[in-house]
Protein backbone atom coordinates (compact mmCIF):
# COMPACT_ATOMS: atom_id res chain seq x y z
CA UNK A 1 0.00 0.00 0.00
CA UNK A 2 2.79 2.35 0.98
CA UNK A 3 4.59 1.56 -2.22
CA UNK A 4 1.50 2.22 -4.29
CA UNK A 5 1.07 5.59 -2.64
CA UNK A 6 4.71 6.45 -3.22
CA UNK A 7 4.42 5.33 -6.83
CA UNK A 8 1.35 7.51 -7.31
CA UNK A 9 3.07 10.56 -5.83
CA UNK A 10 6.17 10.07 -7.99
CA UNK A 11 4.06 9.56 -11.10
CA UNK A 12 2.12 12.75 -10.44
CA UNK A 13 5.31 14.71 -9.82
CA UNK A 14 6.78 13.34 -13.00
CA UNK A 15 3.72 14.27 -15.05
CA UNK A 16 3.82 17.80 -13.62
CA UNK A 17 7.48 18.16 -14.51
CA UNK A 18 7.20 17.05 -18.12
CA UNK A 19 5.80 20.27 -19.68
CA UNK A 20 8.53 22.29 -17.93
CA UNK A 21 11.17 20.00 -19.30
CA UNK A 22 10.55 20.97 -22.91
CA UNK A 23 10.16 24.64 -21.90
CA UNK A 24 13.52 24.57 -20.19
CA UNK A 25 15.23 22.77 -23.00
CA UNK A 26 13.90 25.31 -25.48
CA UNK A 27 15.61 28.06 -23.54
CA UNK A 28 19.02 26.48 -23.61
CA UNK A 29 21.89 28.78 -24.49
CA UNK A 30 22.39 29.27 -28.20
CA UNK A 31 25.87 27.88 -28.31
CA UNK A 32 26.07 25.62 -31.31
CA UNK A 33 29.11 23.45 -31.85
CA UNK A 34 30.14 21.33 -34.73
CA UNK A 35 32.32 19.07 -32.64
CA UNK A 36 35.41 17.14 -33.47
CA UNK A 37 35.96 14.63 -36.23
CA UNK A 38 38.98 12.30 -36.20
CA UNK A 39 41.69 12.47 -38.82
CA UNK A 40 40.50 10.84 -42.07
CA UNK A 41 43.32 8.28 -41.98
CA UNK A 42 42.36 7.18 -38.49
CA UNK A 43 38.68 7.19 -39.32
CA UNK A 44 39.30 5.12 -42.43
CA UNK A 45 40.99 2.30 -40.57
CA UNK A 46 38.51 2.27 -37.71
CA UNK A 47 35.14 2.19 -39.44
CA UNK A 48 35.59 -1.22 -41.10
CA UNK A 49 33.31 -1.41 -44.12
CA UNK A 50 31.02 1.42 -43.07
CA UNK A 51 32.95 4.32 -44.56
CA UNK A 52 30.06 5.42 -46.81
CA UNK A 53 27.52 6.00 -44.04
CA UNK A 54 30.20 7.54 -41.83
CA UNK A 55 31.09 9.98 -44.62
CA UNK A 56 27.42 10.79 -45.08
CA UNK A 57 27.04 11.27 -41.33
CA UNK A 58 29.95 13.74 -41.36
CA UNK A 59 28.29 15.73 -44.15
CA UNK A 60 24.98 15.65 -42.26
CA UNK A 61 26.71 16.91 -39.15
CA UNK A 62 28.03 19.92 -41.02
CA UNK A 63 24.68 20.41 -42.71
CA UNK A 64 22.73 20.38 -39.43
CA UNK A 65 25.25 22.70 -37.85
CA UNK A 66 24.96 25.02 -40.80
CA UNK A 67 21.18 24.79 -40.68
CA UNK A 68 21.16 25.99 -37.07
CA UNK A 69 23.48 28.84 -37.99
CA UNK A 70 21.13 29.98 -40.75
CA UNK A 71 18.21 29.75 -38.34
CA UNK A 72 20.04 31.81 -35.74
CA UNK A 73 21.05 34.32 -38.38
CA UNK A 74 17.44 34.76 -39.39
CA UNK A 75 16.64 35.33 -35.68
CA UNK A 76 19.38 37.98 -35.71
CA UNK A 77 21.65 35.97 -33.46
CA UNK A 78 25.14 36.08 -34.88
CA UNK A 79 27.39 33.13 -34.19
CA UNK A 80 30.86 32.98 -35.61
CA UNK A 81 30.79 29.87 -37.74
CA UNK A 82 33.57 27.29 -37.36
CA UNK A 83 34.40 27.48 -41.03
CA UNK A 84 37.74 25.73 -40.73
CA UNK A 85 36.23 22.85 -38.78
CA UNK A 86 33.34 22.64 -41.24
CA UNK A 87 35.76 22.46 -44.14
CA UNK A 88 37.88 19.81 -42.41
CA UNK A 89 34.86 17.69 -41.68
CA UNK A 90 33.71 17.90 -45.29
CA UNK A 91 37.19 17.09 -46.52
CA UNK A 92 37.25 14.05 -44.21
CA UNK A 93 33.91 12.94 -45.59
CA UNK A 94 35.15 13.26 -49.14
CA UNK A 95 38.34 11.35 -48.38
CA UNK A 96 36.22 8.59 -46.83
CA UNK A 97 33.84 8.50 -49.75
CA UNK A 98 35.17 10.34 -52.83
CA UNK A 99 31.85 9.68 -54.53
CA UNK A 100 29.75 11.49 -51.96
CA UNK A 101 27.85 14.17 -53.87
CA UNK A 102 26.41 15.71 -50.72
CA UNK A 103 29.92 16.60 -49.61
CA UNK A 104 30.82 18.37 -52.87
CA UNK A 105 27.48 20.03 -53.06
CA UNK A 106 27.71 21.43 -49.60
CA UNK A 107 31.30 22.57 -50.03
CA UNK A 108 30.22 24.49 -53.11
CA UNK A 109 27.25 26.00 -51.29
CA UNK A 110 28.98 27.03 -48.09
CA UNK A 111 32.56 27.94 -48.90
CA UNK A 112 32.41 29.97 -52.10
CA UNK A 113 29.99 32.84 -51.67
CA UNK A 114 30.20 33.25 -47.92
CA UNK A 115 33.81 32.50 -47.19
CA UNK A 116 35.53 32.84 -50.50
CA UNK A 117 37.63 29.70 -50.14
CA UNK A 118 37.20 29.01 -53.82
CA UNK A 119 40.57 27.43 -54.46
CA UNK A 120 40.13 24.96 -51.63
CA UNK A 121 36.64 24.11 -52.81
CA UNK A 122 37.88 23.57 -56.32
CA UNK A 123 40.57 21.27 -55.01
CA UNK A 124 37.87 19.13 -53.37
CA UNK A 125 35.68 19.27 -56.45
CA UNK A 126 38.59 17.99 -58.57
CA UNK A 127 38.48 14.76 -56.53
CA UNK A 128 34.82 14.50 -57.35
CA UNK A 129 35.31 15.14 -61.07
CA UNK A 130 37.87 12.37 -61.14
CA UNK A 131 35.69 9.82 -59.31
CA UNK A 132 32.16 10.70 -60.31
CA UNK A 133 32.91 10.34 -63.99
CA UNK A 134 29.30 10.61 -65.02
CA UNK A 135 28.58 13.72 -63.01
CA UNK A 136 28.22 17.04 -64.90
CA UNK A 137 27.45 19.19 -61.89
CA UNK A 138 30.97 19.06 -60.50
CA UNK A 139 32.73 20.38 -63.63
CA UNK A 140 29.94 22.94 -63.82
CA UNK A 141 30.74 24.09 -60.27
CA UNK A 142 34.45 24.29 -60.96
CA UNK A 143 33.88 26.15 -64.19
CA UNK A 144 31.58 28.60 -62.49
CA UNK A 145 33.94 29.13 -59.58
CA UNK A 146 36.83 29.80 -61.88
CA UNK A 147 34.87 32.21 -64.05
CA UNK A 148 32.88 34.04 -61.43
CA UNK A 149 35.13 34.18 -58.43
CA UNK A 150 38.59 33.85 -59.92
CA UNK A 151 37.90 35.61 -63.25
CA UNK A 152 39.79 32.79 -64.88
CA UNK A 153 37.58 32.42 -67.94
CA UNK A 154 40.16 30.44 -69.89
CA UNK A 155 40.46 27.99 -66.98
CA UNK A 156 36.70 27.70 -66.68
CA UNK A 157 36.05 26.89 -70.30
CA UNK A 158 37.32 23.26 -70.35
CA UNK A 159 35.22 22.44 -67.28
CA UNK A 160 32.10 23.90 -68.85
CA UNK A 161 32.89 21.91 -71.93
CA UNK A 162 33.27 18.75 -69.82
CA UNK A 163 29.96 19.46 -68.11
CA UNK A 164 28.28 19.92 -71.48
CA UNK A 165 29.83 16.67 -72.76
CA UNK A 166 28.87 14.69 -69.68
CA UNK A 167 25.34 15.96 -69.50
CA UNK A 168 24.51 16.13 -73.20
CA UNK A 169 22.20 18.86 -71.99
CA UNK A 170 22.05 21.97 -74.24
CA UNK A 171 21.63 24.09 -71.11
CA UNK A 172 25.24 23.55 -70.22
CA UNK A 173 26.44 24.21 -73.73
CA UNK A 174 24.53 27.46 -73.60
CA UNK A 175 25.95 28.28 -70.20
CA UNK A 176 29.42 27.48 -71.45
CA UNK A 177 28.96 29.85 -74.36
CA UNK A 178 27.65 32.55 -72.06
CA UNK A 179 30.58 32.08 -69.75
CA UNK A 180 32.98 32.68 -72.56
CA UNK A 181 31.51 35.98 -73.50
CA UNK A 182 29.68 37.26 -70.49
CA UNK A 183 31.74 39.49 -68.31
CA UNK A 184 28.93 40.97 -66.24
CA UNK A 185 29.54 39.37 -62.91
CA UNK A 186 26.12 39.88 -61.47
CA UNK A 187 24.29 38.29 -64.37
CA UNK A 188 26.69 35.37 -64.29
CA UNK A 189 25.97 34.88 -60.62
CA UNK A 190 22.22 35.08 -61.12
CA UNK A 191 22.38 32.54 -63.89
CA UNK A 192 24.23 30.11 -61.64
CA UNK A 193 21.87 30.71 -58.73
CA UNK A 194 18.78 30.18 -60.84
CA UNK A 195 20.16 26.89 -62.11
CA UNK A 196 21.12 25.69 -58.72
CA UNK A 197 18.04 26.82 -56.76
CA UNK A 198 15.87 24.83 -59.12
CA UNK A 199 17.81 21.72 -58.03
CA UNK A 200 17.93 22.43 -54.30
CA UNK A 201 15.60 20.93 -51.75
CA UNK A 202 17.50 21.38 -48.51
CA UNK A 203 15.92 24.32 -46.70
CA UNK A 204 19.04 25.80 -45.14
CA UNK A 205 20.96 25.74 -48.38
CA UNK A 206 18.03 27.00 -50.37
CA UNK A 207 17.64 29.87 -47.93
CA UNK A 208 21.26 30.95 -48.30
CA UNK A 209 21.10 30.71 -52.06
CA UNK A 210 17.84 32.64 -52.18
CA UNK A 211 19.16 35.35 -49.96
CA UNK A 212 22.15 35.66 -52.21
CA UNK A 213 19.87 35.76 -55.24
CA UNK A 214 17.67 38.46 -53.72
CA UNK A 215 20.73 40.58 -53.02
CA UNK A 216 22.07 40.09 -56.53
CA UNK A 217 18.69 41.02 -57.98
CA UNK A 218 18.78 44.24 -55.99
CA UNK A 219 22.27 44.99 -57.24
CA UNK A 220 21.12 44.30 -60.81
CA UNK A 221 18.17 46.63 -60.40
CA UNK A 222 20.42 49.34 -58.97
CA UNK A 223 22.97 48.84 -61.75
CA UNK A 224 20.21 49.21 -64.32
CA UNK A 225 19.06 52.39 -62.60
CA UNK A 226 22.59 53.81 -62.67
CA UNK A 227 22.86 52.97 -66.39
CA UNK A 228 19.52 54.68 -67.11
CA UNK A 229 20.57 57.73 -65.10
CA UNK A 230 23.82 57.90 -67.03
CA UNK A 231 22.13 57.70 -70.43
CA UNK A 232 19.61 60.37 -69.42
CA UNK A 233 21.95 62.83 -67.68
CA UNK A 234 25.29 61.90 -69.19
CA UNK A 235 26.90 61.59 -65.73
CA UNK A 236 26.86 59.21 -62.82
CA UNK A 237 24.47 59.86 -59.93
CA UNK A 238 26.24 61.12 -56.84
CA UNK A 239 24.16 59.31 -54.28
CA UNK A 240 22.05 56.25 -54.55
CA UNK A 241 18.99 58.16 -53.39
CA UNK A 242 19.23 60.17 -56.66
CA UNK A 243 17.85 57.14 -58.45
CA UNK A 244 14.68 57.37 -56.32
CA UNK A 245 14.24 61.10 -56.85
CA UNK A 246 14.61 60.54 -60.58
CA UNK A 247 11.90 57.89 -60.36
CA UNK A 248 14.20 55.18 -61.72
CA UNK A 249 13.62 52.94 -58.71
CA UNK A 250 10.75 53.08 -56.20
CA UNK A 251 13.03 52.97 -53.15
CA UNK A 252 16.55 52.01 -52.07
CA UNK A 253 16.37 48.30 -51.27
CA UNK A 254 17.50 46.91 -47.91
CA UNK A 255 20.58 44.75 -48.15
CA UNK A 256 19.52 41.34 -46.74
CA UNK A 257 23.05 40.97 -45.31
CA UNK A 258 22.40 43.98 -43.11
CA UNK A 259 24.43 46.65 -44.93
CA UNK A 260 23.57 49.87 -46.80
CA UNK A 261 23.88 50.25 -50.55
CA UNK A 262 25.92 53.20 -51.80
CA UNK A 263 27.68 54.32 -54.95
CA UNK A 264 31.40 54.71 -55.18
CA UNK A 265 33.13 57.49 -57.07
CA UNK A 266 32.97 55.47 -60.32
CA UNK A 267 29.22 55.02 -59.94
CA UNK A 268 29.51 51.33 -59.04
CA UNK A 269 26.93 49.84 -56.69
CA UNK A 270 28.48 48.96 -53.33
CA UNK A 271 27.27 47.95 -49.91
CA UNK A 272 28.64 48.14 -46.40
CA UNK A 273 27.76 44.48 -45.67
CA UNK A 274 29.82 41.40 -46.44
CA UNK A 275 27.83 40.91 -49.61
CA UNK A 276 30.32 43.29 -51.13
CA UNK A 277 33.34 41.43 -49.86
CA UNK A 278 35.11 40.21 -52.88
CA UNK A 279 36.20 36.57 -52.95
CA UNK A 280 39.83 36.22 -51.82
Amino acid sequence: MKFRLLFGILLLAHALLLPHLSERLKQRSVEVKLGYIPHPQILKVSVADHSLPVAEAAVMKVLFYFGTLVEKFQENIVIRPEYLNMYRTLETAILLDPYNMDGYYFAQAAFTWEVGRVKEVNRLLEIGVENRQWDYWLPFYIGFNRAYFLKDFAGAAPYMKLAAERSGDPLFAKLAARYFYESKQTDLGLLFLDTIIAQTKDKAIKATYEMRRAALLMVTALEKGVAAYRSARGSNPERIEDLVTEGLIPEVPVDPYGGNFYLDSDGRVRTTSKLAEQPK
Binding site: L52, P53, E56, M60, L63, Y99, N100, M101, D102, Y105, F106, T200, K201, D202, I205
Partner: peptide, 13 residues
Protein backbone atom coordinates in the same frame (compact mmCIF):
# COMPACT_ATOMS: atom_id res chain seq x y z
CA UNK B 1 18.27 14.34 -45.09
CA UNK B 2 20.60 13.94 -48.01
CA UNK B 3 20.71 16.94 -50.33
CA UNK B 4 21.71 15.38 -53.60
CA UNK B 5 21.84 11.59 -53.21
CA UNK B 6 18.92 10.10 -51.31
CA UNK B 7 19.02 6.92 -53.31
CA UNK B 8 22.74 6.47 -52.82
CA UNK B 9 22.47 7.13 -49.10
CA UNK B 10 19.59 4.66 -48.83
CA UNK B 11 21.62 1.97 -50.57
CA UNK B 12 24.73 2.61 -48.49
CA UNK B 13 22.76 2.69 -45.24
Amino acid sequence: FSMRQSQEVAISL
